[in-house]
């Protein structure tokens, strides 16, 4: 039996063409898995469907990167967001000023930008963004 994975290629095409984020929903336990795996992250079932995630979530934690790695510039905010459907996603939080602890628990929406390939990445990447609700 061949299993159709939610490949990175497919995920990226959906983001770039339709601005939609795909995840996996288990047909057995209904858990949502993101980032994708070969099996349900909750029960290991291989029976799942691809679903469109709402792109909504809540900030769980954050940091401000003051010393960026090669390929990135300036100071920027990285966060972990708990998505409405349950899974976590790592994001760049877009804010006017650098946040303090009060950002934890704030809601917002996920956005996307594409990063070019570098010498080691073996291809382009989607960088996930996060815009806080007002």
């Amino acid at each position: 039996m061949s299993v159709e994975f939610l490949t990175y290629k497919k995920l990226m095409e959906e983001v770039e063409n339709n601005k939609q984020l795909l995840g996996m929903k288990c047909k057995s336990c209904e858990a949502v898995t993101f980032p994708p795996k070969a099996v349900c992250s909750n029960c290991c079932s291989r029976e799942y469907e691809f679903i469109q995630l709402s792109g909504k979530g809540t900030v769980k934690t954050f940091t401000v990167i003051r010393v960026p790695p090669e390929g990135f510039e300036g100071e920027y905010v990285v966060g972990l967001v708990e998505m409405h459907e349950g899974p976590n996603i790592m994001v760049n939080i877009k804010t006017d000023r650098f946040p303090d602890m009060s950002i934890i628990g704030k809601r917002g929406s996920i956005g996307y930008v594409t990063l070019p390939s570098d010498k080691y990445s073996g291809g382009r990447r989607v960088s996930f963004l996060f815009f806080l609700d007002d």
């Binding site: 980032p35 934690t61 010393v67 960026p68 790695p69 996603i89 790592m90 760049n92 080691y120 960088s127």
Partner: peptide, 29 residues
């Protein structure tokens, strides 16, 4: 910094510019 970044998930962490100090900073907050 680029090479150490290879210790992060190349698809779902590195594209956000996370660093090792960054990961532990997320834990601290």
């Amino acid at each position: 910094t680029r090479v150490f970044g290879m210790g992060s998930d190349s698809y779902y962490e590195w594209p956000m510019g996370i660093t090792f100090p960054g990961v532990f900073a997320l834990i601290a907050h």
